[in-house]
Design a protein around this nucleic acid. Structure first.
Lengths: 226, 226
DNA sequence: AAGTACGATATCGTATACGATTACCATAGT
DNA sequence: ACTATGGTAATCGTATACGATATCGTACTT
């Protein structure tokens, strides 16, 4: 959805199967633990098993599902540890991506990002977590638009995809975190506007993600893994 | 080679084909631009096209090759821009991995790493780039052994794999860089021993990788891409 | 001689069929 | 009641065959 696959033609059945299965996972039609049987999926989609198999392997590579021989594919649930790993990694790559992008951000970009953040603030009363999460992605996407290193951007997108598989945003769980997030966004924009150095920008962006993780950990009173 | 694939049984032909093709690319038997035709590879390996196809797709996902419909797969060359992207990303994830691992490193680990670095120093006269590069991987592997976040470690390994596809180490190109590298290793160990904070360790580790990149850029007088 | 259209060829994409491996369950024994 | 064991069935892994499509060479026309 976010990252575009290369090579495979858009209309190929492998691609269609990949998109269809992924959508069903993200939409919650296939919940974690659900067993994806090649033959069943193939007949459901009206395709043969070969393209479905390829789609399954791609989804496995992106860790949407796990795969075992003679057992089949099962939709991967995100356990707290996995969530922690993902958020920590995301804090690092997002921090780097923000710092690298900052020098190339124009005033127009800032204005657009600020507009999105305003919508997020308005969204706080009568809170809609889905809309809020979507706006949050928009906000950071604007900042990353001109990231000079596509590899790092790709890592960010992978992390987002993985979190999306969790489907329930942290904002849902931790009341008050959304407000903090909006404030941190504004602070981040101000920092970039001020022409702060890359280290400062990176630190702020990383802290922004880490704060969300910390809020989650505090809520669940999950022991801080070292 | 470094990262282990999940799911696919070790003995499966897909896996064998994947390993075989990858090895040939890394060994230089398939040079950049070489056209990999499914049917030909399959008959060479004695396999059918289906597992070979799967192997090709995996190699494409790891950007060892490019793939186009009705044209086939061609071995991807690593252009300077791609190298820059990889090194920059690696500087970030290695920095993070080192900082995260530092608190869990024991005195024994330090001693082992120091022993490896001593070998590297000895290797400087009568310089053997292959051995040096291998020792360099050993050195950093020791530091990362107890990294608490496997995701980040995986990103490091991916970067190493990608660099391996370049086959010619930077150390070969930039005389004097090897000496610097050994010195930086020692400094990094001393920093970790001193119980320095994670920010300091991360900064040092990142700079260690960045210095290699800078040496390369200076040599090629390639314009610094911001 | 140059350009264009057409056909042959090469290559991938997919379907189907079969074989190998292992999970699952029922049953009998302790 | 629990455990060990055997057989059955489900599922993946692979081979082969065919179809779709783009590329390349050739012949024909202007």
């Amino acid at each position: 959805m976010i990252t575009q696959s290369a090579g495979t033609p858009a209309g190929s059945k492998s691609e269609q199967a990949y998109a269809a299965i992924k959508d069903k996972i993200l939409a919650g039609k296939y919940t974690p633990g659900y067993r994806l049987v090649l033959a069943k999926i193939a007949s459901d989609l009206g395709f043969s098993v070969v393209p479905v198999r390829e789609a399954i392997r791609r989804l496995e590579a992106e860790s949407y599902i796990t795969f075992e021989r003679n057992i089949g594919a099962t939709v991967a649930g995100i356990d707290p540890t996995e969530y922690l790993y993902t958020m920590q990694t995301l804090s690092i790559v997002e921090g780097a991506a923000t710092a690298l992008s900052a020098p190339m951000i124009t005033e127009t970009d800032i204005a657009r990002a600020r507009a999105v953040n305003t919508k997020m603030r308005e969204c706080l009363d009568d809170f809609d977590p889905v809309l809020f999460t979507s706006l949050n992605l928009d906000f950071h996407s604007i900042l990353f638009e001109n990231c000079p290193n596509p590899h790092i951007l790709d890592l960010v997108h992978r992390g987002w995809n993985r979190l999306q598989a969790l489907r329930s945003s942290t904002f849902t769980y931790v009341p008050g975190r959304a407000q903090q997030s909006v404030a941190e966004h504004e602070a981040l924009l101000a920092l970039i506007e001020s022409g702060a150095g890359p280290d400062d920008v990176e630190h702020a962006a990383r802290a922004h993600r880490t704060a969300t993780l910390d809020a989650y950990l505090a809520r669940t009173s999950h022991p801080t893994q070292h």
